[in-house]
Structure formats: C-alpha cells, structure tokens
C-alpha cells in the first residue's frame, strides 16, 4: 500500500492549475484534502501521471457571503464549514449533514467540495447539494463555467478532466433543518441518509444512499411541510416515497436494496423529527 510513482505539481493559482490540467488531460488528478484520494493512491486504484496539489492556492479557503448566495472555495475544510456561523445560518442543512461526515480528524482535512465531487453513493453532502440546489464553479484553461449540482453528481457524471471545481455556490436559505442517517455501525459510512429542511414557504427532502445518486423527494417534502410541526407517520412517508422513487434502488457490498428501501422512511422520519425539534431560524 504505497502509491505508484507520479509527478507532483504545486500550483499557486487557479489559472496555473487549469493550464496543468489542459496539458495533462486525463492523466492528472487534483489533490485537495486527500482523504478519499490518498487511500486510492496507496492501493494503486488511482495512478495519475501528475498529481496537482491545490492546497497552496490562495483564497480558496474562504466562505464568502454574496447577496443571494454563499460562495465556498475548494479548500474549505469540512470542519471549517461545520463550525461556520454563516453556514449554520444561511445554508440550513449543510452543517447538520457535516456533523455526520466521517469523524472530526478526517473533517479537519477533508474538503466540502472534494466530498461532493467524489460522487460516492450514499455520501451525506450530495443530498444537501441536490436538495438546496447548489451550483459548482468550474474553471478550465478556456474559461469559467457554472454547473448545477445534478449536472456533476450522479452515475456517469464527473468533473471534466481539464476542469477544476473552484467554488460551490449555496443559495442563501435560512431554514430549519434536520439530518439523520443509518450506517452498518454508528459512525461508520452512511447507508441511507436524509435531509429535511423547511422554510415558511417550502419544505425539501433529499435522501442519499437509497439510489445511486441522491434523490430529491418533493412528495415527501410536501407531506412533511403540510403536516408541520407534526411529523407524518413512517407509513405515510413510505407511501410518499414510492411516488418520489424514480430511480433504481442502490445495492452494493455494504448493503442490499431491500434494506435501503425499507429503512428510508424511518430515516426520513427521524430527520423530520430533528427538523421539527430544531429552533426555527427562518
């Protein structure tokens, strides 16, 4: 478990990074937090020709408040976002989800964007990004592009080889939020996770782990929103979920489809409970 040889670059700017990616299309990997990538390097499941370490690019570690969105750079660490008052207030659900990601030491290093674009089925943050309508700022040598979360996250989708995600844009949405997940063991990687978030105007629900890509559940959300502050029964949630379930239920070595399907209403119910109990910040 030692990485195969690679060349290493430590660019100082996004522009320089984009140049490297253009020059080494498909053969380069970006290294930010490294908490997912380095294990792959060690097992030689990833063998890039060039490793581009973006950790020394200035400014990418900022969480900026813009008029209608929060702009978060590619070097914002998960723990940093989790502890950010701005995030807690303006991006309801993100901090709640981050508290479930890995463990405190991994979160110190792992980045929010790295977690999102790793595209791991079940990953907590993908549900948040889809539910809240996050957008990604991509930069390549040719210029900048903004993509919606659903254009980057999901099967067969990935960041184009010559591009770098420099920022994620979160709509400002002060709300109540609740997050819950089940794992094979408390604290282990999630099997099914649910985010429920509600403002006076709308309620949103997204599940990760049930399907290959996180699933946005408008029917369940309407049910929870209309019933607020009472939480609908698991049976009612399960019925709503059958309407929202437009993709195949995911199965992998960690857990089969039947369990995911059966547990999803219970996970949503608990997330909704937590949301109802949370202090209204809207």
């Amino acid at each position: 478990m030692k990485p195969a040889p690679f060349a290493y670059a430590r660019p100082r700017t996004v522009l320089e990074t984009a140049g490297l990616l253009a020059k080494h299309t498909g053969a380069a990997r970006l290294l930010a937090g490294g908490q997912s990538l380095v294990p792959l390097l060690a097992r030689r499941l990833a063998c890039p020709v060039l490793l581009v370490d973006i950790n020394r690019i200035a400014g990418l570690d900022a969480i900026e408040v813009l008029p209608d969105q929060i702009r978060m750079g590619a070097l914002v660490r998960q723990q940093q976002a989790l502890c950010s008052e701005v995030i807690r207030r303006e991006v309801a659900g993100l901090a709640e989800a981050l508290a479930w990601v890995a463990n405190p030491v991994i979160r110190q290093r792992g980045t929010v964007i790295g977690n999102l674009i790793a595209n791991t089925p079940g990953a907590e943050l993908t549900a948040v990004a889809l539910a809240l309508g996050a957008r990604f700022v991509l930069r390549c040598a040719a210029g900048e592009q903004i993509l919606a979360a659903e254009e980057l996250i999901g099967p067969g989708r990935s960041v184009p080889a010559q591009a770098m995600v420099t920022h994620v844009l979160w709509p400002r949405r002060p709300a109540q939020a609740g997050f819950f997940e089940v794992a094979r063991r408390d604290g282990h990687a999630p099997v099914v996770a649910a985010l429920v978030t509600r403002t006076a105007r709308d309620c949103r629900v997204a599940l990760s782990g049930l399907t290959r890509t996180a699933l946005v559940c408008p029917t369940m959300a309407r049910l929870i929103g209309e019933g607020y502050p009472r939480v609908p029964s698991r049976e009612a949630l399960a019925a709503a979920l059958t309407v929202d379930l437009t993709q195949t239920v995911h199965t992998d070595g960690a857990c089969g489809a039947q369990y995911r399907l059966q547990v999803a209403p219970a996970v949503s119910w608990r997330a909704a409970q937590r949301m109802s109990l949370s202090r209204a910040t809207a």
Partner: peptide, 17 residues
C-alpha cells in the same frame, strides 16, 4: 447488521412500527 435484523423481522411478515 441492521440489514440482517430487518430481514429477520420481515420474514415474520409482521409490522415494524
């Protein structure tokens, strides 16, 4: 595992409220 336990409960065919 949670999966194994729910599968056992399901085999009873009963409720899991």
């Amino acid at each position: 595992t949670p999966e194994c336990v729910l599968a056992m409960l399901r085999r009873r065919g009963g409720h899991h409220e």
